[in-house]
Design a protein around this nucleic acid. Structure first.
Lengths: 346, 346
DNA sequence: TCAAAGATACGGGACAGCACAGGACGGGAT
DNA sequence: ATCCCGTCCTGTGCTGTCCCGTATCTTTGA
């Protein structure tokens, strides 16, 4: 049996807090190791002449901090021996894309060394998302989540009741929602959102004079992607085109045998479509930015080198904002900057 | 009689659950086959000093999951061997870069739907790496790990004893090492490695005729990066230059006020350096691929569009190979393809 | 200043899960 | 007939979890 230091009857610190400190102290001293069993509530309370309630409260605090885990009928076990003092953050994203990566990396750069961040990917699958939340419930001090799911072709509702319930279970002060605003969660939570519909509308508006010189605008929106882009992009695009009486079409991808016509303007979302398109423009000996225009969705340094005009979310700002709001304990909704960056491709 | 692994008396997992896991594991490992008889409750309980009740409870769970069927007076028999459990894979990487991302995504595309893959990032920190392995020890069927750590300036030895010990604790048949071969782990493990030194040497060799026409070769090797690149890249580069009597220099990054000279050839590793370099070449009104040459490390679709010559690891192949070796239960060491792709930037 | 509210600590009880030790019964095999 | 098999049963002693009431002390609010 592990030898614990005594509990001080006359201390100002609550007894349950003394128990917590004792356990943590024993862990850092190496006297308690991973997966080791600690005394049961009954044993502990009798050993030190404490109420069962006091020990239970202490164990519950340790459990919430995921330092110990309880198994009904068996006992309490140590499940974490390191990173105890750090703030733990769960970063939950639907898929691993270069943009998500940039958000994550800029977040980690901004949040500083005193935080531990775990990244989990749920591959846009609702069941996985629910599982992960269930599994890590209470284990983290902050949950940064990006709720994007595979949409059924039948229903256009983005979130099922299960998802809403699961997210509502997370204490509001621990919750940070990225990328989405249509959750209908009440209360003061942190939201860092993209306003997909207005973002694309306003960005295109900025480039109107140039855009209007093209005969037809083609949006390449990957409809059948495993991980769908928000359909509000479509709405914003359509709204812009209709309002300015511009001829437009929407396609799923850039096919290899696509017929390009002088005066076409393409807006590509996926990088692969951009690459295919530019290759085809070159093959057909059109001049990019003159015969055929290209606007790409979301900027990268190499797109800048290529001189591709972009409409882009500032992902770096997104990660930084999330970090800042945690560090400064700010609340509220923040819109991520979305810019039209004019280069030579239109 | 089937040899079962032992039941751990002190585990936090209930004993009956350990029995269930053991049986399922033996089925996926092929040690228990269809219609085979498993030990009776009495035999099993005596063999492992368990209560009959515990074994019975485990068998009942398996029966409810239709994995075994009981015949009164005869015994228990395996009745289902397929789709009883997903294979769990832990993908452990040191940092999140676009290349790591490509490996991971191509791995997931290749491994198929019957596997569940978790990605964890240890940020090149030894303690985090050890903690993750300790925490998930035994929870996964395969461990795909990329051992890269922050190097002390004092020691150039890449791996401490702790790391070696931790990796050695993983059963050999579960272990897949990516990216590194200098671990000194004995036994037949799966290794999918990059031979950094010879890769860069051979790739440059392929482009020798073009490279030799430049006056001086500059390698931009980010020495002080938080996540260091293997120094063997340096060795291979130096070897190539010395062997062909080429003038060379090694820099840490592309500075903004760098003096470019006609006849310089740059090899950039980080994308940011490539971007800065190309911008500067344009600012100084040099002609890329004529006045000044650029070779970039690791290919991307946009580099192809830009016409940047690259020497590149085939990351997609890396992920696919890992998946194939798990699916086909192959063993051994496989070198990842590394190519010289000549474009217009030299 | 005083009362209400809250946190702390205690004692106890009820309930369900885990692991163990048996026993009783009928069915299958030899 | 005998032995081992699965099945169902009771009982014991531990475990965590949730609940109640009570007494003390501090903090808060009016």
């Amino acid at each position: 049996m592990i030898k614990f230091i005594d509990i001080d009857e006359n201390s100002r610190v609550p007894k349950y807090q003394q128990i917590v400190d004792t356990i943590i102290h024993n862990i850092s001293a190496g006297k308690l190791t991973m997966d080791q069993k600690i005394p049961s509530i009954n044993v502990f309370s009798e050993e030190f002449y404490l109420s069962r309630d006091t020990v239970e409260k202490a164990y519950n605090i340790l459990k919430e901090r995921k330092i110990i885990t309880s198994i009904k009928g068996k006992g309490y076990y140590i499940t974490r021996t390191k990173l105890i003092s750090k703030i733990n953050i769960l970063f939950l994203i639907n898929k691993l894309s270069s943009y998500k990566m940039r958000i994550y990396n800029s977040f980690r750069d901004s949040i500083g060394g005193n935080c531990h961040t775990d990244l989990h990917i749920y591959h846009s699958e609702e069941s996985l998302f629910l599982n992960l939340l269930e599994k890590h419930n209470g284990a983290y001090d902050y949950f940064i989540i990006m709720p994007h799911f595979k949409t059924d072709s039948l229903r256009h509702i983005s979130y099922t009741d299960n998802v809403k319930k699961a997210i509502n279970k997370i204490p509001k002060e621990k919750l940070i929602i990225l990328d989405n605003i249509k959750l209908g969660i009440t209360g003061e939570i942190v939201e860092i959102y993209q306003d997909f519909e207005n973002d694309i509308y306003n960005a295109l508006q900025e480039g109107l004079s140039k855009i209007a010189s093209y005969k037809k605008i083609m949006l390449i929106y990957p409809e059948k992607a495993v991980y769908p882009y928000p359909r509000r992009i479509l709405h914003g695009f359509k709204k812009f085109c209709i309002q300015h009486s511009l001829d437009f079409e929407i396609h799923n991808e850039i096919y290899n045998d696509m017929v390009l016509k002088k005066g076409d303007l393409f807006i590509t979302i996926e990088e692969s479509d951009l690459v295919n398109l530019v290759k085809q423009i070159r093959d057909d000996e059109f001049i990019l930015g003159k015969d055929i225009g290209v606007i790409s969705y979301n900027d990268t340094p190499l797109k800048e080198l290529l001189g591709i005009t972009v409409i882009s979310t500032d992902f770096k700002a997104m990660g930084e904002t999330a970090a800042q709001m945690i560090l400064n304990k700010e609340k509220g909704k923040v819109k991520v900057p979305f810019n039209f960056i004019d280069r030579e491709s239109i």
